[in-house]
């Protein structure tokens, strides 16, 4: 009964259209991700590293930023975030196929190493947590210039053991910088479970040591995520400094397409993880508040499938960047 369900998105100041847009981004992320796996398993692309299980955390977080104004230093699972920030499905598939026009790297980097100058998405690398320092540096520069931007960075809970994470939080805390460090805790660092990674209960427990709030939020609850990030964004814009937010997520796939999680992860555990699927949960909410029914859902799925088909076809048809350009952009060109 729609009328009896608390309308949580309106309580957060989100319109029905915005709530549907949030779900659309989540679903788009999931369907693109699933398509990438199909392409990888059929030998059309070499590599996938998944966002599945983290769409709520990613879309809810990025939705609290202002597109084109705020900055993102993403990590490899951040498909949901880069879509919200402005990257198109076409651009995602260009990167997946390593084709000319891929805005991240023009086919130079492995897929999922996001970057997009137009949307303030900072190019990333594979060594983990290095991007935390870049986000802090952007925030420092923005503060020096008096710009009221917010910088967000993402990483996994495993990466929160790297020195750069701790150096970055400390620096951001000392200088009260407008950045948000988002740890997407999906309980595994490739094969290593949480209990072998952390001696404390939450990654967010580390925040007080760096003079900032540490917030734990249920990553499968997109509205809870959005609320936490909006508060952190407001805090940052008011000049009150950084926030560490840990979203408790699940990883619904192996680490990457090169991994086989059957060697270390019980199947029952993955079944349990599916109970926390953010897509299922958000979909149920939309049915409850009357924003979605079977007909509208079907229409949405068809629309997204068309968009993905078109993006994949477009990307597949593009040429590779010619080898003659491989020596370009080592240094500034005259």
């Amino acid at each position: 009964m729609a009328t009896q369900t608390r309308n949580r998105h309106q309580e957060l100041g989100l319109s029905d259209e915005q709530m549907l847009e949030i779900y659309r981004y989540m679903l788009l992320t999931r369907r693109i991700d699933e398509r990438l796996w199909l392409l990888q398993r059929s030998g059309k692309i070499p590599f996938v590293i998944s966002a599945q299980g983290q769409e709520g955390a990613q879309v809810g977080a990025a939705y609290a930023l202002v597109r084109g104004k705020d900055w993102l230093a993403p990590y490899y699972r951040d498909l949901g975030k880069v879509l919200v920030m402005g990257m198109t499905p076409r651009e995602v598939f260009l990167a997946a196929f390593a084709k000319q026009g891929d805005p991240s790297s023009n086919g130079r980097q492995m897929a999922h190493h996001w970057g997009h100058r137009r949307w303030n998405i900072i190019s990333g690398s594979s060594p983990v947590a290095t991007q935390v320092l870049h986000a802090v540096g952007v925030a420092l520069a923005a503060k020096m210039k008096g710009h009221d931007i917010v910088v967000m960075t993402s990483l996994g809970e495993g990466s929160s053991n790297q020195g750069d994470f701790h150096e970055g939080l400390n620096f951001a805390g000392v200088h009260k910088l407008p950045c948000i460090i988002h740890v997407q805790n999906n309980e595994y660092a490739i094969s290593v479970p949480l209990k072998k990674q952390l001696a404390c209960e939450n990654v967010a427990d580390r925040a007080p040591g760096y003079g900032m709030p540490g917030v734990v939020v249920d990553g499968s609850d997109v509205l809870a995520v959005y609320a936490a990030f909006r508060e952190a964004v407001d805090r940052a814009r008011r000049g009150e400094g950084p926030t560490l937010i840990e979203s408790k997520c699940v990883r619904l796939t192996p680490h990457s397409s090169d991994d086989d999680d059957r060697t270390y992860r019980p199947r029952e555990e993955i079944e349990r993880a599916r109970q926390r699927d953010p897509i299922t949960r958000t979909r149920a909410y939309l049915y409850e508040v009357g924003l979605l029914d079977e007909e509208r859902e079907q229409a949405l799925e068809v629309e997204i499938r068309r968009e993905i088909d078109e993006a994949q076809e477009y990307a597949e048809a593009q040429p590779y960047e010619p080898v003659e350009t491989a020596m370009r952009h080592v240094y500034k060109e005259a």
């Binding site: 230093a73 900072i122 290095t130 935390v132 320092l133 870049h134 986000a135 802090v136 540096g137 952007v138 925030a139 420092l140 520069a141 923005a142 020096m144 210039k145 020195g163 750069d164 150096e167 970055g168 400390n170 620096f171 000392v174």
Partner: peptide
């Protein structure tokens, strides 16, 4: 002290934060 910054004792951050500032258009 805004333009002559005494950093914490963290070489990786001195460079990494500098990179971020440079990406934003500063010349650290």
């Amino acid at each position: 002290e805004e333009r002559v910054i005494d950093t914490p004792l963290t070489e990786s951050a001195i460079v990494g934060v500098g990179i971020g500032a440079a990406l934003y258009g500063m010349r650290p």
